[in-house]
Design a protein around this nucleic acid. Structure first.
Length: 305
DNA sequence: CTCCAGGTTCCGG
DNA sequence: CCGGAACATGGA
């Protein structure tokens, strides 16, 4: 199985400093829901916590009754990364109280949004098209191992995610070996455009959401769905609402069940109007709940929640 | 083996 | 704007 599900003994020893001087940030957070719900794909379990990159810093985190624990030196980074400035309670209460939304809120209690680096998010989601979450993890691990810089650890996920320049300098063959399939040429072309300055990723955060989305969609392999993932997960656009196959099913079967001729345009407009300015959170909760339920039961059907 | 996965792009109605 | 089909790869 790739990547390895656990750290080898040497890595466990090496990350020990990250587990010292832990402080508790008093917030509501469920790390399993937050880090394993398809927002990010690179965290690895270590004992009772998890290890992974918060932007350019490798960290160990764990949740306890006191809140989120992280080594003191990285507390500011953690506040930023896990969006601890967001009032989860206020956000959740801003959503309609329909059955599906309430069931999702209950199941995903403590799930937070993550502020990701723009390039890493963009590259990862270009590779996510028609791929299972487990496979997206595999691609992330191989990109790190083949193209990223080592940080002195053995585990592939503890290598740095390759920069746009590093991906741009790669050949197609290497990207194919990462398991990207037909997405390889899109990632390569996008990396080269970013590296050449055809688009300023950091500037996207300053633009109105529609302009930012328009720019993102000029990149090969980036359509509306991937663009919305980038906007939501890395550009502070909390109303961005990615519609993937799961969300599409949820909306059509639960929210627009009696409607006729439900087109993709109509699904998109409904989501924007119904869930509001924090809709991205609602989307992530619905996505995670729908997938978790599917794994246990047979099929997504109205009335089962 | 078949089916499907956090889609995008191109093409004819 | 809308529906279909092609596009690679691997887990279930």
């Amino acid at each position: 199985m790739f990547p390895p599900s656990a750290l080898d003994p040497a890595d466990r020893q090496r990350i020990q400093p990250l587990r010292e001087n832990l402080i508790s940030l008093p917030v509501t957070i469920n790390l399993t829901h937050t880090l394993e719900s398809g927002q990010v794909f690179h965290w690895v379990k270590v004992d009772d916590g998890m290890c992974g990159w918060m932007e350019d810093q490798l960290a160990f985190v764990r949740s306890t009754a006191d809140g989120l624990q992280v080594t003191a030196a990285l507390q500011d980074k953690a506040r930023q990364y896990f969006c601890l400035d967001h009032d989860l309670g206020a956000i959740m209460s801003s959503f309609p109280k329909d059955d599906m939304m309430q069931a999702s809120a209950k199941f995903c209690e403590g799930m937070r949004m993550i502020r990701q680096p723009v390039w890493e998010c963009l590259a990862t989601f270009i590779g996510s098209a028609q791929k299972q979450v487990a496979h997206i993890r595999q691609i992330s691990a191989r990109l790190r191992l083949f193209l990223g810089e080592t940080a002195g650890y053995d585990h592939p996920m503890l290598y740095r995610f390759p920069t746009a320049a590093q991906v741009a300098a790669a050949d197609l063959q290497t990207l194919l070996q990462c398991g990207l399939g037909y997405r390889a040429k899109n990632l390569l072309a996008t990396a080269r455009m970013v590296d050449a300055g055809a688009i300023q990723l950091e500037m996207l955060r300053e633009l109105p959401i529609d302009q930012a989305r328009q720019q993102l969609c000029t990149l090969p392999g980036v359509g509306e769905k991937v663009a919305n993932c980038v906007l939501l997960f890395s550009c502070n656009a909390w109303g961005a609402f990615p519609v993937d196959v799961w969300i599409d099913r949820v909306i059509r079967e639960l929210y627009l069940k009696r409607k006729r001729r439900v087109t993709t345009t109509r699904v998109r407009d409904f989501c924007r109007d119904y869930f509001g300015e924090w809709g991205g959170y609602a989307q992530q909760y619905l996505f995670h709940y729908a997938r978790s339920r599917y794994k246990r039961s047979a099929k997504l059907r109205a009335g089962e929640h």
